[in-house]
């Protein structure tokens, strides 16, 4: 595996196959816990940890997998790492794990992880899978954080609890409510579609 291939595998996950903005998978956490930047960052990091570990393990055992049992094996591997991540969060970031609540265990059924296991880890070697996990994980974290920034900025005037907008700005309560999540994501996806189509015309 040459170096340039690894780099393209990495950047692929960041933008061209960005899970939540382009592939439209893993929407539940994207919508649910982006009401503040801190939540979004933690969630992205936890997902990235699970994604990298499960990609690596699945890639190492890929020759042993039976076709009809593979999904079950993926699920068990992912569930194991999610349990690890959940207990780590509870040990070191207790308040954060309280505010994320059931969304940490729900990483198990995050389609991003299963999709990468099926598309990449089950076919390619451990190094490629590891890099792919890093790239997709970072892309996922990036899109979560982007939504978190927009929603926290307009919804509570702050980013990471530092006030940015002046007091005269009336916070848009809707942005921290569920409907704000749908609205922001819809607008961002529209914007991404626009940017991608413009790039295609130029190229």
């Amino acid at each position: 595996m040459s170096k340039s291939n690894l780099v393209s595998q990495f950047t692929n996950g960041l933008w061209a196959e960005n899970p939540s903005l382009v592939m439209l998978i893993g929407m539940c956490p994207t919508l649910a816990i982006t009401n503040s930047v801190a939540n979004a960052l933690t969630m992205g990091m936890a997902t990235m940890f699970v994604l990298v570990c499960s990609n690596l393990v699945i890639s190492l055992i890929r020759s042993q997998l039976q076709a009809h049992l593979r999904i079950l094996v993926y699920m068990l591997i992912v569930a194991t790492f999610v349990t690890v991540a959940d207990y780590m969060l509870q040990a070191y970031l207790f308040t954060m794990s309280q505010s994320l609540g059931p969304y940490v265990p729900l990483i198990i059924v995050n389609c991003v992880i299963l999709a990468r296991a099926e598309i990449c880890a089950a076919k390619k070697g451990p190094v490629t899978s590891f890099v792919d996990g890093l790239g997709v994980g970072l892309g996922f974290t990036f899109s979560l954080t982007l939504l978190g920034v927009i929603r926290e900025l307009f919804g509570s005037r702050s980013i990471l609890n530092y006030q940015i907008l002046p007091d005269s700005f009336e916070p848009w309560v809707v942005m921290v409510l569920p409907s704000g999540a749908f609205l922001t994501l819809g607008l961002v996806i529209g914007l991404v579609n626009y940017l991608r189509s413009r790039k295609r015309v130029e190229a």
């Binding site: 409510l177 409907s179 749908f182 609205l183 819809g186 607008l187 996806i189 529209g190 579609n193």
Partner: peptide
């Protein structure tokens, strides 16, 4: 998906 999400936003507002 974009317009679907925006319609979902309006629905969610009702809920």
């Amino acid at each position: 998906p974009a317009i679907t999400l925006i319609s979902a936003a309006i629905l969610a507002m009702a809920f």
